[in-house]
Amino acid sequence: MNKTICQIVDSSGSLPRDFIKQYNISEVPFYFKFDITNYYRENIDYEITEFYKHMEKHPDDVLKTSAPNIHDWLTVFEEQYARGAKKYIVTTISSKLSSSFQTAISAKKIFEEKNNDAHIEVISSNTCACGQAALEIGIAKLIDSDRDFGDIVETIHKMVTKISTLFVVNSMTYMKAGGRIGGATAFLGKLINIKPVCEFREGVVHPIKAIRGRTKSLKTMIDVAVSRIIDINKMIIIIQNAEFQEDVDYMCNYLRNKTNYSGQIFKSNLGIIVGAHSGPGAIGIGFVEHP
């Protein structure tokens, strides 16, 4: 691995924990709190399983979230600098969904003024969750290939424009509460069991197709994904779920049977910050071509 280039991410991508360790990726956590608690740090202070149990038991307890602050970013920048890193690639959730990108930019300016031999590239993924994770997995592999820093950065910016982030929620209650979907759509879904297939595009949620029933919605999501892929063997694919592992297995099998794909499909839990808006049972697939 190229030890002079370090990779730093915010926690909204919910990268697989073993992948983070394998590629020495630094993760800067988001914060969250319930109505009667202090703030917790994502992936540090609270188990994801317990979080989704809490959501099921207390659906009206709307989560409050907070992006990493400037100090959080600076702390990680300094840790990496002490280890010898001079070049940094930082990725965040879409700048349209959170202030994480802006606080990282502010921290970059402070750090580079203090350390003029450091170069920090901060990139908004323009998405979140599984799409962001697919991008970040690709970045780790680019760094591991010992390519030139400038070439890596240029390639990443091209990759950002080609990410797909598709998802299905089990209940639209949480998206409605978080302001992520219209009240009329949420009400309709409750009445006739609509499970809309949606995507993050340009940092915003867009419905693709309204499907009745959970299994049909999962199949439709994979069908849409496959329709967008030219060569699946060049893709980085990750599936994230909120405590519905059997649906992950179903999606993987359906995707492999439909495409004869035998390559790696990454898997991870849907993180708390994104899961707070999508709720228990949410599941998504993110993919991007690896250059």
Rank of each mutant, 00 (worst) to 15 (best):
A186M: 04
A186I: 00
A186H: 03
F187L: 07
F187K: 08
F187A: 11
L188P: 00
L188S: 04
L188G: 04
G189Y: 03
G189C: 14
G189I: 04
K190G: 07
K190Y: 06
K190E: 00
K190W: 06
L191M: 15
L191E: 05
L191V: 14
I192L: 12
I192N: 06
N193H: 01
N193K: 09
I194Q: 00
K195Q: 04
K195L: 10
K195F: 12
P196I: 05
P196Y: 06
P196M: 09
C198W: 04
E199R: 13
F200V: 13
F200S: 01
R201W: 00
R201F: 08
E202V: 02
E202F: 13
E202C: 10
E202P: 02
G203H: 11
G203Q: 11
G203T: 07
G203R: 09
V204Y: 10
V204L: 12
V205C: 01
V205F: 00
H206L: 13
H206S: 11
P207H: 09
P207K: 09
P207R: 05
P207D: 04
P207N: 09
I208S: 04
I208K: 14
I208M: 14
K209I: 14
K209D: 09
K209W: 09
A210H: 07
A210T: 05
A210R: 09
A210S: 12
A210Q: 07
A210W: 00
A210G: 08
I211T: 13
R212K: 13
R212I: 15
R212P: 00
R212Q: 10
G213C: 10
G213V: 10
R214G: 03
R214T: 01
R214W: 03
R214Q: 02
T215S: 09
T215I: 12
T215V: 08
T215K: 14
K216S: 14
K216H: 14
S217A: 15
S217H: 00
S217N: 07
S217Q: 05
L218M: 15
L218H: 02
L218G: 00
K219V: 05
K219L: 07
T220H: 06
T220Y: 03
T220R: 08
T220L: 07
M221V: 09
M221L: 15
I222A: 05
I222T: 08
D223G: 07
D223A: 09
D223F: 08
D223W: 03
V224S: 07
V224I: 15
V224N: 10
V224Q: 06
A225Q: 09
A225Y: 01
A225F: 11
A225T: 12
A225H: 07
V226K: 06
V226C: 08
V226A: 10
